[in-house]
């Protein structure tokens, strides 16, 4: 498991509280809203927190990419892409 994936799993679990979710047990394909109750407001919280920790500017995301984020796997791919942008 990559460091990025570990970080994202950790923050999904923290955002979904008080629901008790084991970060390592998160299925990367399930819908974050339906499965963990991460509503649009909670998603703002999650994205902002991840951006701060990972050194990415949220506004650097493309709006269409953001609209396609529904699962933990989507988040990992979006941040991989964003970090490539930062590095290049």
């Amino acid at each position: 498991m990559s460091e990025l994936e570990t970080t994202i799993r950790h923050h999904i679990a923290a955002t979904a509280k008080p629901a008790q979710i084991a970060p390592e047990g998160i299925d990367l394909t399930v819908d974050l809203k339906q499965e963990f109750g991460i509503s649009s407001m909670k998603m703002i919280l999650l994205m902002t927190t991840l951006c701060k920790e990972l050194g990415v500017t949220l506004s650097s995301f493309d709006e269409r990419d953001l609209a396609g984020i529904n699962s933990a796997g989507d988040l990992i791919r979006a941040f991989e892409k964003a970090r490539e942008g930062v590095a290049s």
Partner: peptide, 22 residues
């Protein structure tokens, strides 16, 4: 609203116009 938290941290506004959910 999706960029509000980022804007807050970068701009340090004196007034934030919001709604309860935010």
């Amino acid at each position: 609203s999706r960029l509000a938290l980022e804007a807050i941290q970068r701009e340090h506004p004196t007034v934030i116009m919001g709604v309860p959910a935010f």
